[in-house]
Design a protein around this nucleic acid. Structure first.
Length: 442
RNA sequence: GGUCCCAUCGUCUAGUUGGUCAGGACACAGCCCUCUCAAGGCUGGCGCACGGGUUCGAAUCCCGUUGGGACUACCA
């Protein structure tokens, strides 16, 4: 294990922001790449937002993305590591001690009840691992409030104290903190401590280039969890925002990312969030996954949508899932695509009814039903032959039978390959459904 | 306003020390396949923000302009 120690220090806001998730990911990647330690620290000094639910959302989001941490609260009430506590709300004594130290050394002073830090009025250069050397003038910098009138310490103070106390060697954080870094460096210096190396990663922007805030579409990791995205796909997409394997690949295994990931090659410019590309990557992961791998997620989504009964027929489920899987990219689309396989009381798409259930359509459906009722084989290949034979006999295109059939047995105009669909539904169910659809004619 | 950062197709990016038709992916358009499709296959259009330098030669180095972003709290 190397001496590298990095951290993700989110504040519980009620969601895990996509930008925060990427910051966590990059820290995690760096820790795993270097064999270092990934620390989780909860910055819950804002009492108003600090609820157990909000903290739980952070845990579940990180776990979902597969970002395991080596130190910090584990999410079950326990914590690992000897640099704790890992909740800032439990570290008040430590902060008070540091403020006291600054006060006694004359590096801070009381002003109208608050404590201010005497910021150095000298130029400084931040040597950033990603951004390079950045110069700040500082000669006009005002003194910094480090403790409020009510006695609570402010972010800059607690952040630095914790990074120092927790022995962090690298601080990988959003570029929005670049301008804060001179203050943090000054604090480290005042404490007589060696600062960590800083690496400021570019921000994730909305598609229109504006700053992505919690309300914006796609901002919450919880959304992806709810919509049935695959965590590996979301993680893969996030890796590609600011980092690249440089060999024209988009889908890349996380093990390989860990191997190749490093700080200096991270992009310096902000990246816009592209839901389309995430969707595409998710589809790549979805279609590469086996039915067995996808089953837990699929079952969860389907049962949540009341499509799949608790005691579902596994073999039937697998058969259905197999023909649907290649058509969709998102587990969240499963209920819509699979409900009629498990329910007989599906409705009919009105637009499709108008277009397909014409007198001629009903006529063809009746002929088809009649023919299929007499066929013994009901596998997709035999079905295809039957359809084509009937079409040839009546001098029509096979579509003239397929469309009414699809609408009859599913209520929809789109779906999996029809022949495969009928095979999976089986002869009895197919005939019953066609019969029911024919009733609509009257 | 001040300080700081950034600038290759619409978007994400490759282009490591200046010299291969600026490559890939998503999206888009068209075509093909076909029973439908946010399915599959093929093809295509699309870019170095602008202006100056340096150089035999600049997407690449320098300066400026413009544009975008961050910070500028007794929020984090």
């Amino acid at each position: 294990m190397s001496s590298v120690r990095v951290r993700f220090a989110p504040s519980p806001t009620g969601l895990l922001h996509i930008g925060g998730a990427r910051t966590a990911l990059f820290n995690w990647l760096y820790a795993r790449h270097t064999g270092g330690t990934f620390v989780l620290r909860i910055e819950d000094t804002d009492a108003a937002r600090n609820t157990p639910e909000a903290v739980a959302i952070i845990f579940s989001g990180l776990k979902w993305l597969g970002l395991d941490w080596d130190e910090g609260p584990m999410g079950d009430g326990t914590s690992v590591g000897d640099k704790g506590p890992y909740f800032q709300s439990q570290r008040k004594d430590i902060y008070a001690r540091y403020v006291e130290k600054l006060l006694s050394e004359g590096k801070a002073y009381e002003h109208e009840g608050a404590i201010k830090f005497r910021t150095p009025k000298t130029p400084i250069t931040v040597d950033d691992l990603i951004c390079g050397q950045i110069h700040f003038d500082r000669t006009m910098d005002p003194d910094l409030v480090i403790q409020r009138k009510d006695g609570s310490p402010v972010f800059h103070l607690v952040n630095v104290v914790d990074d120092l106390e927790m022995g962090l060697t690298h601080v990988i954080r959003g570029e929005d903190h670049l301008s804060n870094t001179p203050k943090h460096l000054a604090l480290f210096e005042a404490f007589g401590a060696q600062p960590p190396r800083y690496a400021h990663i570019p921000l994730i922007l909305n598609p229109n280039g504006s700053k992505m805030s919690k309300r914006d579409e796609g901002a919450s990791i919880g959304d992806y969890m709810a919509k049935g995205y695959l965590p590996a796909a979301v993680r893969n997409y996030l890796c590609l925002l600011g980092w690249s394997p440089k060999d024209n690949r988009e889908v890349i295994d996380i093990k390989e990312v860990i191997e190749k990931f490093d700080l200096p090659q991270i992009n310096r410019s902000n990246a816009r969030f592209d839901l389309n590309k995430l969707f595409w990557i998710n589809g790549e992961y979805f279609s590469k996954s086996t039915v067995e791998e996808l089953e837990p997620l699929a079952v969860e989504v389907l049962q949540r949508a009341n499509v799949l009964p608790a005691d579902y027929d596994k073999a039937y489920f697998h058969a259905v899932f197999n023909i649907v899987k290649e058509k969709i990219k998102l587990a969240g689309d499963l209920p819509e695509w699979m409900d009629y396989f498990f329910k007989d009381d599906y409705g009919f798409d009105p637009a499709a009814v108008n277009k397909v259930f014409t007198p001629a359509g009903f006529d063809n459906l009746a002929k088809l039903r009649d023919r299929l009722s007499r066929s013994t084989a009901f596998d997709w290949a035999s079905l295809e032959k039957e359809f084509k034979a009937l079409a040839a006999e009546t001098s029509q295109k096979v579509g003239a039978f397929i469309h009414p059939a699809r609408l009859a047995v599913s209520g929809k105009s789109v779906g999996p390959s029809l022949y495969h669909m009928l095979e999976v539904l089986g002869k009895e169910r197919t005939l019953t459904r066609m019969g029911r659809a024919l009733e609509l004619k009257k």
